[in-house]
């Protein structure tokens, strides 16, 4: 077994904490096991699936391939730090409302990667969103709802008053049927950010 314990002052979600861990352990292991931050997931531990993505100095990093011992002085952000209050941020709200999270296992990694994407590029095209997230696998959604959620959140973050797309919520209109356009009664969970 690889020997040695490293003790480091890690900065995670803006909080400093002293963590001791086996030197060969990855950032993923240290976040989940030593820090109890189990929001970050693992799907392969080989850098293939993106489930473990966190932000290091604002850039997405696969925490299963990063050694915790190399994180001295770095700014680590995980899913647990995405909100600043009890309110969901637009990315989270859109993921929850639009079916961008089904089983939810890939979701933290995708949300963190999407955050980094939007921080860099506030107005991405659908293609840019897909390319930006192409390192994250999701087996449930078929990806479109995720792209739509990121697109909506980007618009809201830019200050636009964007509604959810009707086809995203209801599906396409059956050909030959009339549609009724109306604003329904307020349902507290629709479109709000909690």
């Amino acid at each position: 077994m690889a020997g040695g314990i490293t003790t480091l002052d890690l900065r995670i979600n803006g909080e400093q904490r002293v963590v001791a861990f086996p030197t060969h352990h990855t950032l993923l292991e240290v976040l989940r096991e030593e820090c109890g931050l189990t929001g970050t997931k693992h799907g392969c531990e080989l850098g293939e699936c993106g489930a473990c993505a966190v932000l290091v100095d604002g850039r997405p990093v696969l925490s299963c391939l990063a050694l915790a011992a190399e994180m001295k002085g770095r700014d680590i952000e995980t899913i647990e730090g995405l909100q600043e209050s009890n309110e969901l941020v637009p990315l989270q709200a859109a993921f929850a409302d639009l079916g961008a999270a089904q089983c939810g296992y890939c979701t933290p990694g995708i949300l963190m990667t999407a955050k980094a994407l939007l921080d860099q590029k506030p107005d991405p095209s659908r293609k840019e969103i897909s390319e930006g997230l192409a390192g994250n696998l999701c087996r449930c959604t078929g990806y479109h709802k995720i792209v739509e959620a990121v697109e909506w959140a980007a618009a809201v973050e830019r200050g636009e008053n964007r509604e959810y797309d009707a086809e995203t919520l209801w599906g396409a209109t059956e050909p030959g049927l009339e549609t009724s356009l109306e604003t329904g009664p307020e349902t507290p969970t629709d479109g709000s950010t909690d």
């Binding site: 637009p90 709200a93 509604e163 549609t179 307020e186």
Partner: peptide, 13 residues
């Protein structure tokens, strides 16, 4: 936060 537009297809039944 924006409210969704409820463009619900009218079912034939």
């Amino acid at each position: 936060m924006a409210e969704p537009v409820r463009k619900q297809p009218r079912s034939p039944v």
